[in-house]
Each structure stands twice: as structure tokens, then as C-alpha cells.
Design a protein around this nucleic acid. Structure first.
Length: 524
DNA sequence: AAAAAAT
């Protein structure tokens, strides 16, 4: 059997791999590393979760041991479609390059130029970039691409989806012809094949059989719902509470605004929740992701920024709050669970207006997805007209929902995602701010999300006659960014629905200005 | 019906 020791990697790399606990390479690693070390071009067809990142990081580390970086002349360049993926690759260089003294620079948007400029100036062995920020640096004349020996284009098909290909072509033109190019894509549509033909010279083609697109270990269900957001939120909460094996979950929405709104709603209901979408500022994105990975946050409400590539191991559940418009996105989303042979569950809320997208999903995966509790035709009338509709109530979750849901919540209080009733004043927590550092390094990310037990103090709200407790340090944390853009008029959106239809009682009284992080219920 | 990425 092939081991890492058989692949021709250097001692420094091998010992870091061993220290990380790996001995057997994955198929893409076994296939790509030896030719990459011989300076061949690589055409790698593999999805994330196949060990693809290490298949270029490890040989690059070995190759970089010869030679030294010169100022403003990076030696290698890696292009990634999202900031999170770029940061993840940087972490891999830290991990496997711990025996090297390499200068790794992460050039992504949303953070300041200063630190990035310093690293470029010092001479970077490895540049890991999202295309926009890289071109920005190039245009400022801070970067000479003529010394790049290795170019990595990762997730090429996604770059295509995102319209990055013109940027990629511009960047590739700046890099000498003599370079080595490592090109990775999960799929090979004709446009990508054409691109590969242009960028690669006599490449070694390494293809890893697609991880069965919808793993057999993942239980998939459709859940019928009406289309109003407040009803969907009620269905979702109920669904979450019914899972007894929920360790952590990603909840996907189609739109960023809905991510922010659902995040707020779940927060108010006392769930341990974070949010991730592309309009959040970078430090929030980083903190949310770190908190979720550390299990300080149980639920992550996200846009499709989290659907692909992100290495979040061991997600027990995926909930699609919205049916993805493109069926392939469904496959990517539920691919976040049931990884490495573990079991997982994926629930998709489907309303009448989504049914054509739901059909498209079944067609794509060539499989019927069962309905959890009856299909759309079995759905009772919407909430407002529920009592007068005369239709029989279905058992289970509908008995709890309908127009009586809020009273139900009021009686029981918000529940934790593990099914037990949470305290009326949930334990809240906040993420410690990390000073003014803008550079993304693992060390700068707060590891601890410290629970802060709040003292309940009655305070009068103008909008409700109800008495609410007030957070003692309500104003102490204003600088912590929220998962929605600062200038976005959240208040208007929130009032789109009557408050009592929406979310029931507010578990902790912050009035209407809740700093996002205060709402992350800590683990008890 | 969207999201992602440069400011």
C-alpha cells in the first residue's frame, strides 16, 4: 500500500504530515503528488473532502525548499474563489509547513492592505489570493509576477460560475510561460476543459471518482411548508427541536438578507447560532466560522458561500431553509454532512412555489426524496386561516404550530437545539474582540467564546407592554459587527411582519437593538 | 427568486 513516504516528499514535509497523524494518502494525493514533484502540470478533477488541498500544498512545500523569495516577487501563487477557502489553504501551509521558514501571504479582500503589503515587500514564498484583491495589488504596482514558478488554480468550475475567469486569464498572462500549473476543478464542463487546454502543458490528469453525490449515509427529507417566512421559521424551529442526534447544523438560505433575518430570529429564540454570508465584514465571517468549528456555536445560518469547499468536519445536519434555485447547489449543500462515511441528515423546506426546484433536485440526483410528514397536498391552510379552515389538523408538528404556536412558545420558553427547554433568560455569550488586528491568522481568531451570564433587570419597552430583562452591558459591545451590513435597514425588514406573527416572545430584552454576538446562546 | 469577489 502506498504511504506518504513513497511519494517523494521531503523529510520536513513528511514529518509534519506524520505529526498531523496521516500515513496513507488519499487517491488524489497519491495521484497528484509524484508528478507535481517532477514539475509536471496537473489537471486534478476532485471535489473538496477528497484531500485535494494537501495534494498541492505538500509538493509545493517540498519544491519551495530550494531557493529564496525576493522582495515583491512571489515564488508561487494560489487562486481561490472565496476568502474562506483562501484562509483555509493558508492554514494548511501553517500546518504542513511548520518545519519550514516560509513567508506565506494571504491576499484577500475585506481586510487592510498594510499587513499584506508588508508580506509582499518581505518577499513571499506563497501567495494565496482571491482574484480581486490580487489584481488590486498588481495594479498598485506592488507585485511582480515574473518570478512565479508555480500557479495553482483551485475550484476552477466555481470560479467560472462566479465570473472570475476573465480575472484568472489576466492574472495568468502576468506569469511566465515556464511556470508549473496545477489546475483543480470538481467538474469538467466544456468551458473548463477549454480553459485547462489553454493553461496547461501536457498535464498529468488525475481524476478521483466523485464522492457519491448524495452519500448513502445521508437521510434526505423534504418538509412541506407554506411560503411565508414566519411560518417557515416555525417549521424550522420545530424541526430542529425534534432532532435528538443534532450535534451541529448549517442552515442554508438563498439570500443574504434572509440569512441575517433568520439569524436574528433563531437568536431571539435562544438558539446557539451564528451567521455567514458575503456581505458580512471579514472579521465577523472569520469569528463565526471559527466559533462554529470550535463547537461554540451549534447552528450556522449561511448563504451558499458555505455550500462548497469549506472544511467543516462532522456536521450532523443540513437544513435548507430555502430550496436552492440551482439543483447542483443542493448537492453541494448537503455534501456538508455525512462526510467520511458518517451519518447525516438533510432537511429541505419546500413550499408550493418551490416545487419545480424540488423536482429538479430529484431529477439531478436521480432519486426520490421522501416527505417528512406528508407532501404539499397534505399541507393544512396557512396560519391565519387555520382555525376557520375546517381542515383536520395533522398530527405532530402541526398541532404545535398553526395559530397557537406563539402561545406554545410562551408557555414552554425557547428550547435549546438539543431539545430541552432553555432557561427563560438564556445564557448569552459574546465573542471577544481581537483588538484591531486585521490580518487573518489562526492565532488572531478568538478561540474562546466566553459565556456571559446576564442579570435580568426589568425594563419598559415602548413597543410592548411586556416587561423585559435588560442586558447589563448593553452598550459595551457595540463595536462587534453584526451579520448584516451596517447601513442595511434591518429595522424595516424586521417589521415586515407583525411581531406576534413572527417570533413570539423575545427571550432576552434588548429592545430592538441587539448586538448580534450577545445573542449567541452559550453552551450550558 | 441568488451568491460569490475589489473599493
Amino acid at each position: 500500500m502506498t504511504t506518504f513516504a513513497d511519494l517523494g516528499l521531503s523529510q520536513k514535509v513528511l514529518s509534519a504530515v506524520t505529526d498531523a497523524g496521516y500515513t496513507i494518502p488519499t487517491p488524489i494525493q497519491a495521484g497528484a503528488i509524484p508528478p507535481a514533484l517532477q514539475r509536471r502540470d496537473i489537471l486534478g478533477i476532485a471535489q473538496t473532502g477528497t484531500g485535494k488541498t494537501a495534494s498541492f500544498v505538500l509538493p509545493m512545500l517540498t519544491l519551495l525548499e530550494k531557493g529564496r523569495a525576493r522582495a515583491r516577487m512571489p515564488r508561487t501563487l494560489i487562486l481561490e474563489p472565496t476568502r474562506e477557502l483562501a484562509a483555509q489553504v493558508a492554514e494548511n501551509f501553517e500546518k504542513y509547513g511548520k518545519n519550514h521558514k516560509l513567508n506565506v501571504a494571504l491576499l484577500i479582500g475585506g481586510v487592510s492592505f498594510d499587513e499584506q503589503d508588508r508580506k509582499i515587500e518581505r518577499g513571499a514564498d506563497v501567495l494565496i489570493c482571491t482574484p480581486g484583491r490580487l489584481l488590486d495589488h498588481c495594479e498598485r504596482g506592488k507585485l511582480l509576477m515574473t518570478g512565479v514558478e508555480v500557479l495553482v488554480i483551485d475550484e476552477a468550475d466555481r470560479m467560472l460560475d462566479m465570473g472570475f475567469i476573465p480575472d484568472i486569464e489576466r492574472i495568468a498572462k502576468l506569469i511566465p510561460f515556464t511556470r508549473q500549473t496545477l489546475f483543480f476543478s470538481a467538474t469538467m464542463p466544456p468551458e473548463i476543459q477549454k480553459l485547462a487546454d489553454r493553461f496547461l502543458q501536457n498535464p498529468e490528469r488525475v481524476e478521483v471518482s466523485v464522492r457519491s453525490s448524495t452519500a448513502a449515509t445521508v437521510t434526505q427529507r423534504f418538509v412541506a411548508t407554506h411560503s411565508k417566512d414566519y411560518e417557515k421559521r416555525a417549521v424550522l424551529r420545530d424541526l430542529i427541536q425534534k432532532q435528538d442526534d443534532l450535534k451541529n447544523a448549517i442552515i442554508f438560505c438563498n439570500r443574504k438578507l434572509d440569512v441575517a433575518e433568520l439569524f436574528r430570529s433563531l437568536s431571539r429564540h435562544g438558539f446557539s447560532v451564528g451567521a455567514l454570508h458575503g456581505d458580512m465584514d471579514q472579521s465577523s465571517r472569520t469569528k463565526m466560522l471559527a466559533g462554529f468549528k470550535d463547537n461554540a456555536i451549534t447552528l450556522l445560518v449561511a448563504s451558499d458561500v458555505a455550500a462548497r469547499g469549506l472544511d467543516i468536519p462532522d456536521v450532523s445536519h443540513v437544513f435548507n431553509f430555502d430550496v436552492p434555485i440551482h439543483a447542483e447547489d443542493y448537492v453541494h449543500r448537503i455534501g456538508r454532512t455525512g462526510r467520511a462515511g458518517r451519518s447525516g441528515a438533510a432537511f429541505t423546506l419546500v413550499s408550493k412555489r418551490d416545487s419545480k426546484f424540488a423536482d429538479a433536485i430529484e431529477k439531478l440526483i436521480d432519486k426520490k426524496i421522501e416527505w417528512l410528514d406528508g407532501d404539499l397536498s397534505a399541507l393544512p391552510a396557512p396560519m391565519e386561516s387555520h382555525e376557520s379552515s375546517g381542515k383536520p389538523e395533522r398530527g405532530g408538528r402541526d398541532g404545535k404550530r398553526g395559530g397557537r404556536r406563539n402561545e406554545h412558545d410562551r408557555e414552554r420558553g425557547p428550547r435549546s437545539p438539543h431539545g430541552h427547554v432553555a432557561p427563560t433568560h438564556p445564557v448569552t455569550s459574546q465573542v471577544a474582540t481581537s483588538g484591531h488586528k486585521s490580518d487573518i491568522k489562526t492565532d488572531d481568531i478568538p478561540k474562546e467564546i466566553e459565556p456571559v451570564i446576564t442579570k435580568a433587570e426589568p425594563v419598559k419597552s415602548e413597543r410592548k407592554a411586556e416587561t423585559k430583562p435588560q442586558h447589563a452591558s448593553r452598550n459595551s459591545n457595540r463595536s462587534v459587527p453584526a451579520p448584516y451590513p451596517a447601513n442595511d435597514d434591518v429595522r424595516d425588514r424586521r417589521n415586515r411582519y407583525r411581531r406576534d406573527q413572527d417570533d413570539g416572545p423575545t427571550p432576552v430584552g434588548f429592545g430592538d437593538d441587539i448586538p448580534a454576538f450577545m445573542l449567541i446562546a452559550g453552551k450550558a
